[in-house]
Write a protein that binds this DNA or RNA. Structure first.
Length: 297
DNA sequence: CCACGATCCTGCTAGC
DNA sequence: TGCTAGCAGGATCGTG
């Protein structure tokens, strides 16, 4: 569910809400949520410790504690991190709760139980963890030159590569489809086949699509909520994702849905030709940000 | 290195 | 109305 823009939105909300709060106790209601510790170990490690900062790395929310330790939370498909005041009724599907000194709570609510939290005793351990699971941040200095180097000698197809978190950290199924449409690139293009102009379009699309979605506080199709429980707005601006059969906002051709790497994939057959080459003439008629209409709320 | 299938889970919905 | 198959913002592991 949550991809980079949703995680970024959540992190900004959590920073406001819980930095400076001190953990009184930890409650674990679904043990497998904890990836590398027992409930007792996590409780002992966090009791009495203050939240010093909240950051994002890829799709992970990272809670940093005053003692240098950190808790990395990956929400997978349906997980949400909600801040609730003292005495607020518990949400169903709550898997993990940090209760603070003032009685307020941070709750990890996750219908499908895929989400995971991992505890890291210090910065070195945290860095080692992310070295394993997360590649470069797509919003930090992703120049066309750098993207070209990343794509070189990659023989796989574009979309599965964008979904590979060690290639770039934070892009998921929605934004991969939106990015490739924005760049006018077919998801099955071989990654090392892009011309320099195409790499430039891809770098621009990655930045533009992700930044626009952050500005709209993320995409809420069904389950995603921010730390206040609010929905995002970006679902109203999707060009291809979830719009099979509907007209392409740029050229009007019906959006196709196909299956690629076990993921539903949405593509405009006219704007995203499978063969390498210059973009179709109509590319650029619509600028990023003004695409889409109200036909799908 | 790359593709594919199975697995972990629950809820919703389209179609019969 | 009621049931069921299939699908869902993800990642990992094993096989070929």
């Amino acid at each position: 569910m949550p991809e980079l823009p949703e995680v970024e939105t959540t992190v900004r909300g959590l920073k406001e809400a819980i930095v400076g709060r001190r953990v009184r106790e930890v409650e674990v209601t679904w043990e497998r949520t904890l990836a590398n510790a027992s409930p007792a170990e996590l409780g002992a490690a966090l009791a009495g410790v203050t939240i010093a900062d909240v950051t994002r790395r890829g799709k992970h929310v990272v809670l940093h504690f005053a003692d240098g330790a950190a808790l990395a939370v990956h929400r997978r498909m349906t997980g949400n991190l909600l801040v609730r005041p003292p005495g607020a009724p518990t949400e169903p599907y709550t898997r993990l709760t940090l209760r603070f000194d003032d009685g307020s709570e941070l709750r990890f609510v996750d219908i499908r139980k895929f989400g995971r939290a991992s505890y890291h005793r210090d910065q070195a351990a945290l860095a080692a963890f992310f070295a394993q699971v997360a590649g470069p941040e797509p919003l930090e200095d992703l120049t066309p030159q750098r993207l070209a180097a990343l794509l070189a000698r990659r023989r796989g197809r574009l979309k599965p590569l964008l979904l590979d978190q060690t290639f770039l950290a934070g892009i998921g199924n929605i934004y991969a489809d939106e990015i490739l449409w924005t760049a006018g690139l077919h998801p099955e293009r071989r990654a090392d086949s892009l011309a320099p102009a195409e790499i430039g379009r891809l770098a621009d699309a990655i930045r533009d699509v992700l930044l626009a979605a952050i500005e709209r506080r993320g995409t809420s199709l069904r389950d995603y909520r921010d730390s206040d429980g609010e929905r995002g707005d970006n679902q109203r601006f999707l060009a291809v994702y979830g719009r099979a059969g509907a007209p392409c906002p740029r050229c009007g051709a019906p959006i196709e849905k196909r299956w690629l790497g076990q993921r539903g994939t949405h593509v405009c057959p006219r704007c995203q030709p499978i063969h390498a080459g210059p973009p179709p003439d109509h590319m650029g008629e619509t600028r990023a940000g003004e695409r889409c209409g109200p036909e799908r709320l």
